[in-house]
Amino acid sequence: MTPSSDAPPVRVVIVDDHSIFRSGLKADLDASIEVVGEAHDVDSAVQVVTATAPDVVLIDVHLPGGPAAGIAGAAASGTHGDATPSGGAEVIRLAAPHVPGTRFLALSVSDSAEDVVGVIRAGARGYITKGSSGIDVSRAVHAVAGGDAVFSPRLAGFVLDAFGVVSGEVAATDEELDRLSVREQEVMRLIARGYAYKEVASDLFISPKTVETHVSAVLRKLQLSSRHELTAWATARKLL
């Protein structure tokens, strides 16, 4: 999703336990993104996110710290120090109820199924790896802020697992594809691979608005509700 020149900036909080990474990411993000806060562990992340209510939280899945007592409404527990795989998911579970308009986008060096599935089930709207460029991260931020789900292409199988789709429970591919026009099938494959509307438009020599129209038609015909579900659908049918 590409922002218009007069659109307000997307407000973002960066959560990562490495200050150098936070600084580098902040410098690489597009000018249309405003970093309104940073945090380095679970407790500080919950505090900053609930205080600033950003549009998007860029969050690592491995964070040190334990539950924040003031937000969770219970006594603090856990130890500080080593980053744990559940740290990012814990932040989402604790903070999300207090900031319903905020979306969470995982940004991690890890591409393990356990990490991907865990943070998605906690409520993350996307998961991209730290090998992504500043441009890619910026596009993902705008997409998530706009309501889309975004995943690095090679993580599509883990997304499928997160939705509990089991091999053997997939409907006949030919019959479903027959519902889509040739152009809709082209758009479907690119969108399911994680391409932004602008990238699809460039590849197919059509306008982003036309891409949006095709995506809406694809989701309607396949009875899906989001790009997230489309990725799972296409992966299950080995269409990517």
Rank of each mutant, 00 (worst) to 15 (best):
P3F: 11
S4H: 14
S5M: 12
V10G: 04
R11Y: 04
R11A: 12
R11F: 07
V13L: 10
V15F: 03
H18T: 12
S19Y: 06
I20H: 10
I20S: 12
R22S: 11
S23A: 15
G24Y: 10
A27I: 09
A27N: 11
D28Y: 08
D28F: 12
A31I: 03
S32K: 11
S32R: 13
I33K: 07
A39Q: 04
H40R: 13
H40K: 13
V42Y: 05
Q47A: 15
V48R: 12
V49D: 04
A53Q: 14
P54W: 06
P54D: 06
V56S: 05
L58F: 02
I59A: 02
P67W: 00
A69N: 07
I71K: 02
I71G: 00
I71D: 02
A72C: 04
A72K: 10
A72R: 13
G73A: 10
A76P: 13
H80M: 10
H80R: 12
G81F: 10
T84K: 15
R93P: 00
A95I: 06
A96I: 01
P97A: 09
H98T: 09
R103P: 03
R103G: 02
L105P: 07
L105D: 05
A106F: 05
S108K: 06
D111Q: 13
S112F: 11
A113V: 11
D115I: 01
G118I: 00
V119T: 14
I120D: 00
I120S: 05
R121Y: 01
G126H: 06
S133R: 02
G134I: 09
I135K: 12
D136V: 10
V137E: 05
S138E: 06
A140D: 05
V141N: 02
V141W: 03
V141G: 04
H142T: 07
H142S: 10
A145E: 03
G146W: 05
F151Y: 14
P153V: 08
R154G: 00
L155N: 05
V159P: 01
V159S: 01
L160V: 06
D161F: 02
G168F: 06
E169D: 15
V170S: 10
V170W: 03
A171K: 13
A172G: 01
A172R: 12
D174I: 03
D174S: 13
E175M: 04
L177Q: 07
L180W: 07
L180F: 11
V182W: 06
E184W: 08
E186A: 14
V187G: 07
R189G: 12
I191R: 15
R193Y: 04
R193F: 03
R193T: 14
Y195V: 01
Y195R: 14
A196G: 02
Y197F: 14
E199N: 08
V200D: 06
L204E: 09
K209N: 13
V211G: 08
E212P: 00
E212R: 15
T213K: 14
H214E: 15
V215D: 01
V215Q: 15
L222S: 08
Q223T: 14
R227D: 11
E229M: 11
L230W: 09
T231V: 08
W233Q: 06
A234S: 14
T235W: 09
R237C: 07
L239E: 02
L240D: 03
L240A: 01
